[in-house]
Design a protein around this nucleic acid. Sequence first.
DNA 1: GCAGTGTCAATTGTCGACAATTTGCAAAAA
DNA 2: TTTTTGCAAATTGTCGACAATTGACACTGC
Lengths: 246, 246
Amino acid sequence: MDKQADHPEMAAANGDDEPATGVFHTISSTDLVTQIARQITEAIVSGNLRPGSRLTELQLSREFGTSRAPVREAARLLESQGLVVSSPRRGFFVRTLEPQDLHDIYELRIGLEVHAALLAVDRITEHEIDRLQRQIEKMYALADEGSLEQQIMEDFTFHRLLCAASGNRRLLKVYDELATEMRCGIALIGRLFDSAHRLAETHEPVLDALRERDADKLAAAVRFHIVEAQDQVVELFSEISRRPKP
Amino acid sequence: MDKQADHPEMAAANGDDEPATGVFHTISSTDLVTQIARQITEAIVSGNLRPGSRLTELQLSREFGTSRAPVREAARLLESQGLVVSSPRRGFFVRTLEPQDLHDIYELRIGLEVHAALLAVDRITEHEIDRLQRQIEKMYALADEGSLEQQIMEDFTFHRLLCAASGNRRLLKVYDELATEMRCGIALIGRLFDSAHRLAETHEPVLDALRERDADKLAAAVRFHIVEAQDQVVELFSEISRRPKP
DNA sequence: GCAGTGTCAATTGTCGACAATTTGCAAAAA
DNA sequence: TTTTTGCAAATTGTCGACAATTGACACTGC
Protein backbone atom coordinates (compact mmCIF):
# COMPACT_ATOMS: atom_id res chain seq x y z
CA MET A 1 0.00 0.00 0.00
CA ASP A 2 2.23 2.74 -1.21
CA LYS A 3 2.14 4.44 -4.54
CA GLN A 4 -1.27 5.75 -5.36
CA ALA A 5 -2.45 9.14 -6.40
CA ASP A 6 -4.66 8.70 -9.38
CA HIS A 7 -7.54 10.95 -9.84
CA PRO A 8 -6.76 14.58 -9.31
CA GLU A 9 -9.68 15.65 -7.27
CA MET A 10 -13.16 14.22 -7.79
CA ALA A 11 -14.76 17.48 -8.88
CA ALA A 12 -16.72 16.73 -5.75
CA ALA A 13 -20.44 16.92 -5.38
CA ASN A 14 -20.83 19.61 -7.98
CA GLY A 15 -22.25 18.48 -11.26
CA ASP A 16 -21.13 21.77 -12.67
CA ASP A 17 -19.29 20.52 -15.71
CA GLU A 18 -22.26 20.91 -17.93
CA PRO A 19 -21.93 23.05 -21.01
CA ALA A 20 -25.03 21.13 -22.02
CA THR A 21 -28.45 22.17 -23.12
CA GLY A 22 -29.88 22.31 -19.63
CA VAL A 23 -33.00 20.76 -21.03
CA PHE A 24 -32.79 17.19 -19.86
CA HIS A 25 -33.28 15.69 -16.46
CA THR A 26 -30.75 13.16 -15.32
CA ILE A 27 -32.45 9.88 -15.95
CA SER A 28 -33.80 8.30 -12.80
CA SER A 29 -30.85 6.16 -11.93
CA THR A 30 -31.78 2.55 -11.65
CA ASP A 31 -29.57 2.56 -8.55
CA LEU A 32 -31.01 -0.42 -6.77
CA VAL A 33 -29.44 0.33 -3.43
CA THR A 34 -31.00 3.77 -3.20
CA GLN A 35 -34.41 2.52 -4.22
CA ILE A 36 -34.32 -0.32 -1.75
CA ALA A 37 -33.13 1.94 1.05
CA ARG A 38 -35.90 4.38 0.26
CA GLN A 39 -38.56 1.71 0.39
CA ILE A 40 -37.33 0.28 3.68
CA THR A 41 -37.16 3.77 5.13
CA GLU A 42 -40.69 4.45 4.02
CA ALA A 43 -41.87 1.23 5.66
CA ILE A 44 -40.16 2.14 8.92
CA VAL A 45 -41.36 5.71 9.05
CA SER A 46 -44.91 4.77 8.12
CA GLY A 47 -44.96 2.15 10.82
CA ASN A 48 -45.40 -0.84 8.56
CA LEU A 49 -42.13 -2.14 9.92
CA ARG A 50 -42.24 -1.92 13.66
CA PRO A 51 -39.24 -1.16 15.86
CA GLY A 52 -37.41 -4.30 16.82
CA SER A 53 -38.66 -6.34 13.90
CA ARG A 54 -36.11 -8.33 12.02
CA LEU A 55 -35.01 -7.73 8.46
CA THR A 56 -33.86 -10.90 6.73
CA GLU A 57 -31.82 -10.38 3.62
CA LEU A 58 -33.30 -13.28 1.70
CA GLN A 59 -36.88 -12.28 2.29
CA LEU A 60 -36.25 -8.66 1.38
CA SER A 61 -34.33 -9.62 -1.73
CA ARG A 62 -37.24 -11.78 -2.82
CA GLU A 63 -39.68 -8.94 -2.22
CA PHE A 64 -37.59 -6.54 -4.27
CA GLY A 65 -36.77 -9.09 -6.91
CA THR A 66 -33.03 -8.62 -6.54
CA SER A 67 -30.17 -10.57 -5.06
CA ARG A 68 -29.03 -10.14 -1.48
CA ALA A 69 -26.09 -7.89 -2.30
CA PRO A 70 -27.95 -4.62 -2.88
CA VAL A 71 -30.23 -5.37 0.05
CA ARG A 72 -27.21 -5.75 2.29
CA GLU A 73 -25.78 -2.46 1.14
CA ALA A 74 -29.07 -0.70 1.64
CA ALA A 75 -29.33 -2.11 5.13
CA ARG A 76 -25.82 -0.95 5.94
CA LEU A 77 -26.73 2.49 4.66
CA LEU A 78 -29.75 2.59 6.91
CA GLU A 79 -27.60 1.40 9.77
CA SER A 80 -25.25 4.34 9.32
CA GLN A 81 -28.30 6.57 9.45
CA GLY A 82 -29.44 4.98 12.67
CA LEU A 83 -32.67 3.60 11.26
CA VAL A 84 -31.65 -0.01 11.78
CA VAL A 85 -29.10 -1.75 13.94
CA SER A 86 -27.17 -4.89 13.16
CA SER A 87 -25.74 -7.66 15.23
CA PRO A 88 -22.97 -9.83 13.78
CA ARG A 89 -24.23 -13.08 12.37
CA ARG A 90 -27.73 -12.19 13.45
CA GLY A 91 -28.72 -9.59 10.93
CA PHE A 92 -30.59 -6.32 10.91
CA PHE A 93 -33.35 -5.05 13.16
CA VAL A 94 -35.42 -1.92 13.00
CA ARG A 95 -34.07 0.58 15.48
CA THR A 96 -35.93 0.93 18.74
CA LEU A 97 -36.04 4.46 20.11
CA GLU A 98 -35.81 4.38 23.88
CA PRO A 99 -36.94 7.28 26.06
CA GLN A 100 -33.29 7.89 26.86
CA ASP A 101 -32.55 8.25 23.15
CA LEU A 102 -35.28 10.81 22.71
CA HIS A 103 -34.08 12.72 25.73
CA ASP A 104 -30.53 12.80 24.39
CA ILE A 105 -31.66 13.86 20.94
CA TYR A 106 -33.72 16.78 22.19
CA GLU A 107 -31.07 17.86 24.67
CA LEU A 108 -28.55 17.84 21.84
CA ARG A 109 -30.89 19.71 19.55
CA ILE A 110 -31.04 22.54 22.06
CA GLY A 111 -27.30 23.04 21.85
CA LEU A 112 -27.19 22.51 18.13
CA GLU A 113 -30.04 24.76 17.11
CA VAL A 114 -29.24 27.53 19.55
CA HIS A 115 -25.75 27.54 18.08
CA ALA A 116 -27.17 27.48 14.57
CA ALA A 117 -29.49 30.37 15.36
CA LEU A 118 -26.71 32.46 16.84
CA LEU A 119 -24.61 31.89 13.75
CA ALA A 120 -27.58 32.67 11.55
CA VAL A 121 -28.47 35.89 13.30
CA ASP A 122 -25.47 37.57 11.71
CA ARG A 123 -25.65 35.82 8.38
CA ILE A 124 -29.26 35.27 7.49
CA THR A 125 -30.60 37.14 4.49
CA GLU A 126 -33.97 38.78 4.11
CA HIS A 127 -34.79 36.18 1.54
CA GLU A 128 -34.14 33.37 4.00
CA ILE A 129 -36.24 35.09 6.63
CA ASP A 130 -39.09 35.29 4.16
CA ARG A 131 -38.67 31.61 3.47
CA LEU A 132 -39.04 30.86 7.19
CA GLN A 133 -42.12 33.07 7.30
CA ARG A 134 -43.72 31.13 4.48
CA GLN A 135 -42.85 27.92 6.23
CA ILE A 136 -44.78 28.95 9.31
CA GLU A 137 -47.72 29.92 7.15
CA LYS A 138 -47.62 26.50 5.56
CA MET A 139 -47.80 24.97 9.01
CA TYR A 140 -50.83 27.06 9.89
CA ALA A 141 -52.52 25.89 6.70
CA LEU A 142 -51.82 22.27 7.50
CA ALA A 143 -52.91 22.67 11.12
CA ASP A 144 -56.54 22.63 10.06
CA GLU A 145 -56.62 20.02 7.39
CA GLY A 146 -53.28 18.28 7.03
CA SER A 147 -52.25 14.92 8.34
CA LEU A 148 -50.02 14.65 11.37
CA GLU A 149 -47.20 13.30 9.26
CA GLN A 150 -47.34 16.30 6.96
CA GLN A 151 -47.28 18.66 9.91
CA ILE A 152 -44.25 17.00 11.38
CA MET A 153 -42.47 17.08 8.05
CA GLU A 154 -43.08 20.80 7.75
CA ASP A 155 -41.85 21.30 11.29
CA PHE A 156 -38.67 19.44 10.38
CA THR A 157 -38.33 21.65 7.33
CA PHE A 158 -38.55 24.82 9.43
CA HIS A 159 -35.80 23.68 11.76
CA ARG A 160 -33.74 22.51 8.82
CA LEU A 161 -33.99 25.93 7.22
CA LEU A 162 -32.83 27.45 10.48
CA CYS A 163 -29.80 25.18 10.58
CA ALA A 164 -29.09 25.85 6.94
CA ALA A 165 -29.16 29.58 7.62
CA SER A 166 -26.23 29.07 9.96
CA GLY A 167 -24.09 28.66 6.87
CA ASN A 168 -22.41 25.66 8.45
CA ARG A 169 -22.83 22.58 6.30
CA ARG A 170 -21.48 20.19 8.86
CA LEU A 171 -23.95 21.45 11.40
CA LEU A 172 -26.75 20.95 8.92
CA LYS A 173 -25.58 17.40 8.37
CA VAL A 174 -25.82 16.67 12.08
CA TYR A 175 -29.32 18.07 12.13
CA ASP A 176 -30.27 15.83 9.23
CA GLU A 177 -28.92 12.82 11.08
CA LEU A 178 -30.98 13.67 14.13
CA ALA A 179 -34.07 14.28 12.04
CA THR A 180 -33.67 10.90 10.38
CA GLU A 181 -33.45 9.20 13.74
CA MET A 182 -36.48 10.99 15.03
CA ARG A 183 -38.46 9.80 12.06
CA CYS A 184 -38.10 6.31 13.52
CA GLY A 185 -40.37 7.30 16.33
CA ILE A 186 -43.02 9.41 14.70
CA ALA A 187 -45.01 6.42 13.54
CA LEU A 188 -45.47 5.54 17.19
CA ILE A 189 -46.79 8.90 18.13
CA GLY A 190 -50.40 8.80 17.12
CA ARG A 191 -51.32 12.34 17.97
CA LEU A 192 -48.36 14.48 18.75
CA PHE A 193 -49.65 17.87 19.69
CA ASP A 194 -52.86 18.73 21.39
CA SER A 195 -53.16 21.56 18.97
CA ALA A 196 -51.40 21.67 15.66
CA HIS A 197 -52.17 25.36 15.61
CA ARG A 198 -50.17 25.74 18.78
CA LEU A 199 -47.27 23.96 17.08
CA ALA A 200 -47.21 26.53 14.33
CA GLU A 201 -47.53 29.41 16.79
CA THR A 202 -44.54 28.43 18.85
CA HIS A 203 -42.26 29.13 15.91
CA GLU A 204 -43.16 32.79 15.77
CA PRO A 205 -40.90 34.02 18.60
CA VAL A 206 -37.90 32.47 16.87
CA LEU A 207 -38.65 34.29 13.67
CA ASP A 208 -39.31 37.55 15.52
CA ALA A 209 -35.95 37.42 17.25
CA LEU A 210 -34.24 36.69 13.95
CA ARG A 211 -35.90 39.69 12.36
CA GLU A 212 -34.77 41.90 15.21
CA ARG A 213 -31.30 40.35 15.09
CA ASP A 214 -31.51 39.99 18.86
CA ALA A 215 -29.12 37.21 19.82
CA ASP A 216 -30.15 36.78 23.45
CA LYS A 217 -33.83 36.77 22.66
CA LEU A 218 -33.21 34.33 19.84
CA ALA A 219 -31.28 31.86 21.96
CA ALA A 220 -34.00 31.90 24.58
CA ALA A 221 -36.72 31.47 21.98
CA VAL A 222 -35.08 28.50 20.32
CA ARG A 223 -34.35 26.87 23.64
CA PHE A 224 -37.88 27.39 24.88
CA HIS A 225 -39.39 26.09 21.68
CA ILE A 226 -37.38 22.88 21.65
CA VAL A 227 -37.92 22.23 25.34
CA GLU A 228 -41.65 22.57 24.86
CA ALA A 229 -41.60 20.10 22.00
CA GLN A 230 -39.45 17.77 24.06
CA ASP A 231 -41.89 17.85 26.94
CA GLN A 232 -44.78 16.87 24.74
CA VAL A 233 -42.89 14.15 22.93
CA VAL A 234 -41.40 12.60 26.04
CA GLU A 235 -44.72 12.63 27.86
CA LEU A 236 -46.55 11.11 24.93
CA PHE A 237 -43.85 8.54 24.47
CA SER A 238 -43.88 7.33 28.04
CA GLU A 239 -47.66 7.21 27.84
CA ILE A 240 -47.37 4.86 24.90
CA SER A 241 -44.75 2.78 26.63
CA ARG A 242 -47.04 2.27 29.60
CA ARG A 243 -49.62 0.52 27.48
CA PRO A 244 -47.49 -2.37 26.15
CA LYS A 245 -48.65 -3.77 22.85
CA PRO A 246 -51.71 -3.66 20.68
CA MET B 1 -44.40 -6.11 3.70
CA ASP B 2 -46.81 -6.64 6.49
CA LYS B 3 -46.58 -9.13 9.28
CA GLN B 4 -43.25 -9.06 11.02
CA ALA B 5 -42.37 -8.75 14.66
CA ASP B 6 -39.90 -11.46 15.41
CA HIS B 7 -37.24 -10.84 17.92
CA PRO B 8 -38.46 -9.19 21.08
CA GLU B 9 -35.79 -6.67 21.69
CA MET B 10 -32.10 -7.27 20.98
CA ALA B 11 -30.84 -7.15 24.54
CA ALA B 12 -28.83 -4.26 23.12
CA ALA B 13 -25.23 -3.48 23.81
CA ASN B 14 -25.11 -4.98 27.27
CA GLY B 15 -23.11 -8.16 27.50
CA ASP B 16 -24.25 -8.51 31.08
CA ASP B 17 -25.74 -11.96 30.94
CA GLU B 18 -22.66 -13.74 32.14
CA PRO B 19 -22.93 -16.03 35.16
CA ALA B 20 -19.69 -17.33 33.73
CA THR B 21 -16.26 -17.78 35.17
CA GLY B 22 -15.13 -14.31 34.28
CA VAL B 23 -11.81 -15.80 33.27
CA PHE B 24 -11.93 -15.85 29.52
CA HIS B 25 -11.74 -13.07 27.02
CA THR B 26 -14.22 -13.04 24.19
CA ILE B 27 -12.30 -14.41 21.26
CA SER B 28 -11.32 -11.75 18.77
CA SER B 29 -13.77 -12.31 15.98
CA THR B 30 -12.07 -12.63 12.66
CA ASP B 31 -14.62 -10.15 11.32
CA LEU B 32 -13.05 -9.32 7.99
CA VAL B 33 -14.95 -6.11 7.41
CA THR B 34 -13.79 -4.58 10.66
CA GLN B 35 -10.19 -5.60 10.11
CA ILE B 36 -10.17 -4.23 6.59
CA ALA B 37 -11.81 -1.00 7.65
CA ARG B 38 -9.26 -0.62 10.42
CA GLN B 39 -6.33 -1.12 8.06
CA ILE B 40 -7.65 1.33 5.51
CA THR B 41 -8.32 3.85 8.25
CA GLU B 42 -4.80 3.40 9.53
CA ALA B 43 -3.42 3.97 6.06
CA ILE B 44 -5.43 7.15 5.65
CA VAL B 45 -4.61 8.60 9.04
CA SER B 46 -0.94 7.77 8.73
CA GLY B 47 -0.81 9.45 5.35
CA ASN B 48 0.10 6.36 3.35
CA LEU B 49 -3.11 6.86 1.46
CA ARG B 50 -3.32 10.46 0.38
CA PRO B 51 -6.54 12.47 0.13
CA GLY B 52 -8.10 12.13 -3.29
CA SER B 53 -6.40 8.84 -4.12
CA ARG B 54 -8.55 6.14 -5.52
CA LEU B 55 -9.46 2.90 -3.79
CA THR B 56 -10.12 0.10 -6.25
CA GLU B 57 -11.95 -2.87 -4.85
CA LEU B 58 -10.04 -5.48 -6.78
CA GLN B 59 -6.64 -4.20 -5.79
CA LEU B 60 -7.57 -3.91 -2.12
CA SER B 61 -9.16 -7.36 -2.11
CA ARG B 62 -5.95 -8.79 -3.53
CA GLU B 63 -3.89 -7.01 -0.89
CA PHE B 64 -6.07 -8.33 1.91
CA GLY B 65 -6.41 -11.77 0.37
CA THR B 66 -10.19 -11.64 0.39
CA SER B 67 -12.91 -11.22 -2.16
CA ARG B 68 -14.36 -7.86 -3.08
CA ALA B 69 -17.48 -8.18 -0.92
CA PRO B 70 -15.93 -7.43 2.48
CA VAL B 71 -13.82 -4.69 0.94
CA ARG B 72 -16.94 -3.06 -0.41
CA GLU B 73 -18.62 -3.18 2.95
CA ALA B 74 -15.59 -1.76 4.69
CA ALA B 75 -15.44 1.06 2.18
CA ARG B 76 -19.11 1.84 2.70
CA LEU B 77 -18.49 1.88 6.43
CA LEU B 78 -15.68 4.34 5.99
CA GLU B 79 -17.88 6.39 3.73
CA SER B 80 -20.49 6.69 6.47
CA GLN B 81 -17.71 7.88 8.74
CA GLY B 82 -16.66 10.49 6.24
CA LEU B 83 -13.21 9.06 5.64
CA VAL B 84 -13.88 8.22 2.02
CA VAL B 85 -16.38 9.39 -0.55
CA SER B 86 -17.91 7.41 -3.35
CA SER B 87 -19.20 8.24 -6.76
CA PRO B 88 -21.57 5.84 -8.51
CA ARG B 89 -19.83 3.57 -10.99
CA ARG B 90 -16.55 5.30 -10.23
CA GLY B 91 -15.68 3.91 -6.86
CA PHE B 92 -14.18 5.18 -3.64
CA PHE B 93 -11.74 8.01 -3.04
CA VAL B 94 -10.01 9.13 0.10
CA ARG B 95 -11.83 12.15 1.48
CA THR B 96 -10.26 15.52 0.84
CA LEU B 97 -10.60 17.97 3.68
CA GLU B 98 -11.12 21.46 2.30
CA PRO B 99 -10.44 24.59 4.34
CA GLN B 100 -14.19 25.16 4.39
CA ASP B 101 -14.69 21.72 5.94
CA LEU B 102 -12.19 22.46 8.68
CA HIS B 103 -13.82 25.81 9.36
CA ASP B 104 -17.25 24.20 9.64
CA ILE B 105 -16.00 21.45 11.88
CA TYR B 106 -14.33 23.80 14.34
CA GLU B 107 -17.24 26.20 14.32
CA LEU B 108 -19.54 23.29 15.08
CA ARG B 109 -17.24 22.01 17.78
CA ILE B 110 -17.57 25.30 19.59
CA GLY B 111 -21.32 24.91 19.85
CA LEU B 112 -21.09 21.22 20.62
CA GLU B 113 -18.41 21.31 23.28
CA VAL B 114 -19.68 24.42 25.00
CA HIS B 115 -23.03 22.71 25.26
CA ALA B 116 -21.36 19.54 26.51
CA ALA B 117 -19.41 21.46 29.10
CA LEU B 118 -22.49 23.27 30.37
CA LEU B 119 -24.29 19.98 30.74
CA ALA B 120 -21.27 18.47 32.42
CA VAL B 121 -20.84 21.28 34.91
CA ASP B 122 -23.86 20.03 36.83
CA ARG B 123 -23.26 16.34 36.32
CA ILE B 124 -19.56 15.71 36.35
CA THR B 125 -18.20 13.64 39.22
CA GLU B 126 -15.00 14.17 41.13
CA HIS B 127 -13.73 10.97 39.61
CA GLU B 128 -14.26 12.28 36.11
CA ILE B 129 -12.54 15.54 37.00
CA ASP B 130 -9.56 13.57 38.21
CA ARG B 131 -9.56 11.69 34.96
CA LEU B 132 -9.39 14.96 33.04
CA GLN B 133 -6.56 16.11 35.28
CA ARG B 134 -4.57 12.98 34.53
CA GLN B 135 -5.24 13.47 30.85
CA ILE B 136 -3.66 16.91 30.94
CA GLU B 137 -0.67 15.50 32.76
CA LYS B 138 -0.31 12.86 30.10
CA MET B 139 -0.22 15.62 27.51
CA TYR B 140 2.51 17.44 29.38
CA ALA B 141 4.53 14.26 29.49
CA LEU B 142 4.16 13.73 25.77
CA ALA B 143 4.93 17.35 24.99
CA ASP B 144 8.61 16.73 25.57
CA GLU B 145 9.14 13.35 24.07
CA GLY B 146 6.02 12.10 22.30
CA SER B 147 5.27 12.10 18.62
CA LEU B 148 2.88 14.64 17.20
CA GLU B 149 0.37 11.94 16.44
CA GLN B 150 0.37 10.78 20.03
CA GLN B 151 -0.17 14.31 21.26
CA ILE B 152 -3.11 14.83 18.98
CA MET B 153 -4.64 11.55 20.04
CA GLU B 154 -4.40 12.57 23.68
CA ASP B 155 -5.91 15.92 22.87
CA PHE B 156 -8.82 14.13 21.21
CA THR B 157 -9.17 11.98 24.29
CA PHE B 158 -9.44 15.01 26.55
CA HIS B 159 -12.21 16.54 24.51
CA ARG B 160 -13.92 13.19 24.25
CA LEU B 161 -13.91 12.84 28.02
CA LEU B 162 -15.45 16.27 28.27
CA CYS B 163 -18.23 15.31 25.88
CA ALA B 164 -18.74 12.04 27.69
CA ALA B 165 -19.11 13.93 30.96
CA SER B 166 -22.13 15.65 29.48
CA GLY B 167 -23.96 12.39 30.01
CA ASN B 168 -25.47 12.71 26.54
CA ARG B 169 -24.56 9.72 24.41
CA ARG B 170 -25.86 11.16 21.20
CA LEU B 171 -23.70 14.23 21.69
CA LEU B 172 -20.70 12.01 22.26
CA LYS B 173 -21.46 10.20 19.05
CA VAL B 174 -21.42 13.46 17.12
CA TYR B 175 -18.08 14.33 18.65
CA ASP B 176 -16.70 10.97 17.61
CA GLU B 177 -17.87 11.57 14.07
CA LEU B 178 -16.15 14.92 13.98
CA ALA B 179 -12.98 13.48 15.48
CA THR B 180 -12.92 10.77 12.85
CA GLU B 181 -13.20 13.32 10.09
CA MET B 182 -10.47 15.45 11.55
CA ARG B 183 -8.17 12.46 11.60
CA CYS B 184 -8.27 12.65 7.81
CA GLY B 185 -6.32 15.84 7.95
CA ILE B 186 -3.79 15.28 10.67
CA ALA B 187 -1.42 13.40 8.41
CA LEU B 188 -1.12 16.58 6.38
CA ILE B 189 -0.25 18.73 9.31
CA GLY B 190 3.40 18.13 9.82
CA ARG B 191 3.89 20.21 12.92
CA LEU B 192 0.66 21.33 14.43
CA PHE B 193 1.52 23.45 17.37
CA ASP B 194 4.50 25.66 17.80
CA SER B 195 4.71 24.37 21.30
CA ALA B 196 3.19 21.12 22.42
CA HIS B 197 3.59 22.40 25.95
CA ARG B 198 1.32 25.27 25.08
CA LEU B 199 -1.24 22.80 23.77
CA ALA B 200 -1.36 21.07 27.12
CA GLU B 201 -1.52 24.35 29.01
CA THR B 202 -4.53 25.65 27.19
CA HIS B 203 -6.66 22.90 28.67
CA GLU B 204 -6.12 24.08 32.21
CA PRO B 205 -8.70 26.89 32.26
CA VAL B 206 -11.38 24.45 31.17
CA LEU B 207 -10.59 22.15 34.02
CA ASP B 208 -10.42 25.01 36.49
CA ALA B 209 -13.86 26.23 35.54
CA LEU B 210 -15.24 22.72 35.86
CA ARG B 211 -13.78 22.41 39.34
CA GLU B 212 -15.35 25.70 40.37
CA ARG B 213 -18.61 24.72 38.68
CA ASP B 214 -18.63 28.14 37.09
CA ALA B 215 -20.79 27.88 33.98
CA ASP B 216 -20.00 31.26 32.42
CA LYS B 217 -16.29 30.88 32.93
CA LEU B 218 -16.45 27.36 31.56
CA ALA B 219 -18.27 28.34 28.39
CA ALA B 220 -15.77 31.08 27.74
CA ALA B 221 -12.83 28.79 28.40
CA VAL B 222 -14.03 26.07 26.06
CA ARG B 223 -14.85 28.57 23.36
CA PHE B 224 -11.49 30.27 23.66
CA HIS B 225 -9.62 26.99 23.63
CA ILE B 226 -11.27 25.70 20.49
CA VAL B 227 -10.95 28.99 18.67
CA GLU B 228 -7.25 29.03 19.42
CA ALA B 229 -6.82 25.52 18.08
CA GLN B 230 -8.87 26.45 15.04
CA ASP B 231 -6.67 29.42 14.31
CA GLN B 232 -3.54 27.34 14.35
CA VAL B 233 -4.99 24.53 12.27
CA VAL B 234 -6.55 26.78 9.67
CA GLU B 235 -3.41 28.83 9.30
CA LEU B 236 -1.23 25.77 9.01
CA PHE B 237 -3.61 24.19 6.58
CA SER B 238 -3.71 27.13 4.22
CA GLU B 239 0.06 27.31 4.44
CA ILE B 240 0.24 23.74 3.24
CA SER B 241 -2.29 24.37 0.51
CA ARG B 242 -0.19 27.24 -0.83
CA ARG B 243 2.69 24.94 -1.61
CA PRO B 244 0.99 22.55 -4.04
CA LYS B 245 2.52 19.10 -4.19
CA PRO B 246 5.71 17.43 -3.14
C1' DG C 1 -38.93 -32.16 36.01
C1' DC C 2 -34.39 -30.19 34.76
C1' DA C 3 -29.71 -29.23 33.26
C1' DG C 4 -26.93 -30.28 29.68
C1' DT C 5 -25.96 -32.16 24.88
C1' DG C 6 -26.63 -33.24 20.02
C1' DT C 7 -28.90 -32.25 15.78
C1' DC C 8 -31.00 -29.50 12.17
C1' DA C 9 -33.12 -25.69 9.71
C1' DA C 10 -32.52 -20.88 8.88
C1' DT C 11 -29.57 -17.10 8.05
C1' DT C 12 -25.45 -14.52 7.50
C1' DG C 13 -20.50 -14.13 5.69
C1' DT C 14 -17.79 -14.81 1.85
C1' DC C 15 -16.67 -16.07 -2.68
C1' DG C 16 -15.97 -16.19 -7.84
C1' DA C 17 -18.27 -14.99 -12.18
C1' DC C 18 -20.72 -12.27 -15.41
C1' DA C 19 -22.93 -8.00 -17.17
C1' DA C 20 -22.91 -2.99 -17.50
C1' DT C 21 -20.52 1.23 -17.44
C1' DT C 22 -16.78 4.34 -17.40
C1' DT C 23 -12.29 5.98 -18.89
C1' DG C 24 -8.21 6.43 -21.66
C1' DC C 25 -6.32 6.15 -26.06
C1' DA C 26 -6.04 6.03 -30.79
C1' DA C 27 -7.84 6.71 -35.23
C1' DA C 28 -10.63 9.39 -38.24
C1' DA C 29 -12.81 13.60 -39.65
C1' DA C 30 -12.97 18.66 -39.90
C1' DT D 1 -4.02 21.20 -35.25
C1' DT D 2 -8.36 20.37 -33.04
C1' DT D 3 -12.51 17.89 -32.34
C1' DT D 4 -15.22 13.92 -32.74
C1' DT D 5 -15.82 9.00 -32.97
C1' DG D 6 -14.90 4.25 -31.95
C1' DC D 7 -12.73 0.74 -29.47
C1' DA D 8 -10.55 -1.82 -25.57
C1' DA D 9 -9.13 -2.31 -20.90
C1' DA D 10 -10.29 -1.56 -16.30
C1' DT D 11 -13.70 -1.30 -12.77
C1' DT D 12 -18.09 -1.35 -10.52
C1' DG D 13 -22.92 -3.42 -9.94
C1' DT D 14 -25.27 -7.55 -9.42
C1' DC D 15 -25.93 -12.31 -9.10
C1' DG D 16 -26.24 -17.28 -7.46
C1' DA D 17 -23.73 -20.69 -4.66
C1' DC D 18 -21.35 -22.51 -0.81
C1' DA D 19 -19.38 -22.46 3.95
C1' DA D 20 -19.84 -21.06 8.74
C1' DT D 21 -22.58 -19.80 12.52
C1' DT D 22 -26.68 -19.21 15.20
C1' DG D 23 -30.92 -20.45 17.61
C1' DA D 24 -34.50 -23.78 18.49
C1' DC D 25 -35.95 -28.15 19.42
C1' DA D 26 -35.72 -32.76 20.79
C1' DC D 27 -33.15 -36.00 23.34
C1' DT D 28 -30.46 -38.09 27.03
C1' DG D 29 -29.23 -38.96 31.69
C1' DC D 30 -29.92 -37.61 36.38
